[in-house]
Simulated assay, not measured.
Amino acid sequence: MTTSAIHTVTVLAGGISHERDVSLRSGRRVVDSLAANGIQVELRDPDASLLAHLTSDRPDVIWPALHGASGEDGALRGLLEALDIPFVGSTSAAARLAWDKPTAKELARRVGVRTPRGITLSHDAFRELGAAGVLAAIAEEHPVPVVVKPARGGSAQGITVVDEPGGLPRAMVDAYTYCDDVIVEQKITGTEIAVGVIDTGDGPVALPAVEIVPRSGTYGFEARYNAGETTFYTPARLDAAAGEAAAAAAVAVHEALGLRHLSRVDLIVDAAGTPWFLEVNVLPGLTETSLVPMALDAAGYELGLVYAALAEKAVRDRG
């Protein structure tokens, strides 16, 4: 991985999403890693002056570290494409596919990756068809245990594991707080893992799977970003066949959605060793407790060199 073509990088972090604090932590870690490799790095919190600044003082590469809609729904990436400024991460079109969880699940299913059975319901339909009737229909078709989550969003915000039928109404309300569309899906029991996928020029490669064991039993927002709340095993405690299947599933999802450079695929591996796709993140967290940096470290990579190589590939991919 060579890094001679990159001199200046602008890291975008912060924003106005629910994940602002996580974004700032990720952005600062990227800045530190790139600066340690001799690259001039600027950290910017996007605001109304950003586009004018990028037009007048163009960096070699943009590194979006904006979690949530502002960085992952494709809008910002589309503007960067219009400005013809290289950026690390997936294109705007691919980001839109991944951002919408029902779409990502369907594309994963089409390439042979198992996905939990479920239903997606808009807030309008929930209200207009009558909450009581809708909840009864959901409970009949998708009996507990189920997972209720926003159809778009990250960092496990708005996600509830429902083990008792009486918990479904509250879970729906909580999920609708974050998104107008909500998924209710079968809960898959097994080993929860995250598989990072990187491509610095030789095609997408799966990193060692990170096994996630939260103290609370649920890998929610607090468990993700507070040290000591979750135990991680890297590589995951899977047998060889299950590990290979998970790696293959992660790369298949990455390719099916047309992602590039860097992604993280979240899976559950059941007792039979079958990986089930949950969701994919085109901008995985890069904080001190995030999973992709753990996997890179376990694979023997030096973070700064990998990040610089990804920035260089962004320049090559602009055309």
Results as ranks from 00 to 15, higher is better:
K105F: 02
I85D: 03
L51M: 15
I119C: 06
L129S: 15
P59Q: 13
A125L: 05
S90L: 01
G71L: 01
P64E: 06
A104H: 01
T115P: 03
H67C: 11
F126Y: 06
E72Q: 03
I119E: 11
P59C: 14
K105I: 02
R110S: 15
S56Q: 13
I85R: 03
P59Y: 14
P86E: 04
F126Q: 01
I62Q: 10
L66C: 06
L66M: 08
G89V: 00
T91H: 05
I62F: 10
H67M: 10
A104T: 02
T120R: 06
F87M: 02
D124H: 04
E72W: 00
R109E: 14
L79E: 08
I85Y: 04
G112F: 06
D84M: 07
A94G: 12
V134S: 11
P64C: 05
A65R: 09
I62W: 11
R77D: 08
F126V: 00
W99V: 01
A93H: 12
G89I: 00
I62S: 08
L54A: 05
A94H: 07
G130D: 12
V113N: 11
A95Q: 09
L51P: 09
T115R: 07
L54N: 04
D100C: 03
A52R: 12
G118T: 07
R110N: 15
